[in-house]
Structure formats: C-alpha cells, structure tokens
C-alpha cells in the first residue's frame, strides 16, 4: 500500500477511535439521555395519547411515530457530537495537534463526520431496541433503512462540523439545535402525516429537508411515506456532497483555526 495512503488511514482510524472513545467515556451525557427521552415519548405520546388518536397511515399511532423518533435521536446526536467535539478542541486549542501534523483536511473531516455518524447510529440502535418494548418493530426495507439513516447522520454530522467552525463560544453551538433543528424536526412529520395539513401547509412542509428524511426512513421501516423515496434519497446525496464541499473549503481556509 502507498505509504501516504497508509499514513492517512492510520490517522483516520486514530480520529474515529478518539471520537468513539470520547462519546463512550461520557455515556451518561451522550447515550443515556436520548434513551430516557425516547422512552418517555413512546410511553406518553405513543401509548397514553396515541391509543386515543387511533390509526395513522394504516398503522397504530405509536407504530407510526417510532421511525420519526428514531430519526429525531439520530439527527440530534450526530449533529451535537461533531459540533461539541470539534468546538471543544478548538476552544482548548488541542486542534493545534491536528493542524501541525500532516493529516489532510479530508481525513480530518471524514474522521469527525464518521465519529458523528457512529454516535448517531449507536443512539439509533439504542432507541430502536427500546422501542421493541412498546411495538413489534419490523423492517420493511433494510437497504433503504440503513442508507437513509446513514445519509441523515452524515448530513447532520457535516452540519455540526460547519457550525463548530463558525462558533466562537458555547452559545453559538446551541443556537442551531435549539432554533433550527428542533422546530424543523417537530414540523418534519415525526408525529403526524402531512396529509392532515391543508394543501398550502403541505407545500410549505415539503421544503423542510427533515420531512424527506423522516418519511424515507418511515418507508424503510413501515413501507409508507408522504413523499417519493427517490427524490428524498437524491436530495440527501446532494446535501451530503454540498455540505462536504463547504466543510472542506472552510477547513482548508483555516477559518476560526488559523490567523
């Protein structure tokens, strides 16, 4: 194997391993809270209130919201893993360890993004396992399910990376999750089908990227969706590529890292 390539692969493995070690070490802050939150959603919205709502999209209400809740956990955790980890090494200046070394910007970006994807998927698995205490979770289309959840985690990991590059203080890393991600997720069809909305609000909802991700994932699990899967997958691929290009450009410029 080419020496340069081997060195980059070792560096990539180092970054990913360090990221996994980080979120595993602080599991009470990273892996436990989404489990507890989602169990509360399953119990209160799914069982208690859901039993009174009845069916949605041909499924019981709890079955309908489980895929969306899994995605909500994946989105939040992949984003917050990268934004907090990358901003924290910027804040502590340990990012200089990376900048003085010969690691390429692509390796840095892929390493952090994979760290975010790993946490997103780990949380996704935890929430899925917990959901089995409430429903008989069956996967309608495994390929679509895995592809959608991985692409979603990638998109939000890259989004978290860009946020971390621009962030100057800890407030800056909580603005996007609080004021952008949470509203978009709640309005992204996690708890309802957009068929319930008037036509005008249906059209508006289609602009929300999270709606496409949640519905594509719901298709993978239940086989039903408010949108076309092909369009959703194409959108996610384009979004991943665009965010990757923007992240690399920012990383190369040294914005927020080099003077």
């Amino acid at each position: 194997m080419n020496v340069e390539l081997r060195a980059n692969l070792v560096a990539l493995g180092t970054i990913v391993l360090r990221e996994i070690r980080r979120f595993a070490r602080i599991w009470p802050q990273t892996l436990l809270p989404p489990g507890i939150t989602m169990v509360l959603y399953f119990a209160i919205f799914g069982r208690l209130i859901g039993n009174r709502i009845g069916e949605m999209g041909g499924f019981s209400y709890i079955e309908y919201i489980v895929p969306g809740l899994i995605m909500m956990a994946v989105i939040t955790n992949s984003y917050s893993n990268v934004v907090s980890s990358f901003f924290s090494i910027k804040f502590q200046r340990s990012i200089e360890e990376l900048l003085v070394s010969p690691v390429s910007p692509h390796v840095i970006l892929i390493g952090f993004a994979l760290g975010g994807v790993c946490r997103g998927l780990a949380v996704g698995v935890i929430v899925s396992v917990l959901s089995m205490f409430f429903i008989n979770l069956q996967v309608h289309h495994l390929g679509v399910t895995v592809l959608v959840v991985t692409l979603t985690a990638t998109i939000f990991s890259l989004g978290g990376f860009i946020n971390a590059i621009f962030a100057r203080n800890f407030d800056d890393i909580s603005i996007v999750p609080t004021f952008v991600l949470t509203p978009l997720t709640y309005l992204g069809g996690v708890f309802y089908s957009i068929d319930l909305l008037p036509p005008f609000w249906q059209s508006i909802s289609l602009v929300n990227p999270i709606l496409h991700m949640v519905n594509a994932f719901r298709y993978g699990i239940l086989g039903v969706s408010d949108i076309r899967i092909g369009v959703a997958l194409a959108f996610m691929l384009v979004a991943s590529a665009t965010l990757y290009a923007v992240s690399i450009r920012l990383l190369r410029s040294g914005r927020g890292m080099r003077q």
Binding site: A7, R93, S101, P102
Partner: peptide, 30 residues
C-alpha cells in the same frame, strides 16, 4: 518538524498516554 508551543494546548480530559499515542496516529504511526 516538532513544535513545543508556548501555551498548553492538549485536551484537558485525555490521559497523557492517550495524548501521545493519538498524536503519533496523526503522523500515521501504527
């Protein structure tokens, strides 16, 4: 090039053995 900066710039929460092994990894050292 090896650089010893003026200000401390390592992860405050990482073990010192891990800091060295991680830094070596950035240079492609197995």
């Amino acid at each position: 090039l090896g650089v010893v900066p003026q200000e401390f710039n390592f992860n405050q929460f990482e073990k010192i053995f891990d800091i060295l092994v991680t830094q070596a990894g950035y240079y492609g050292i197995l």
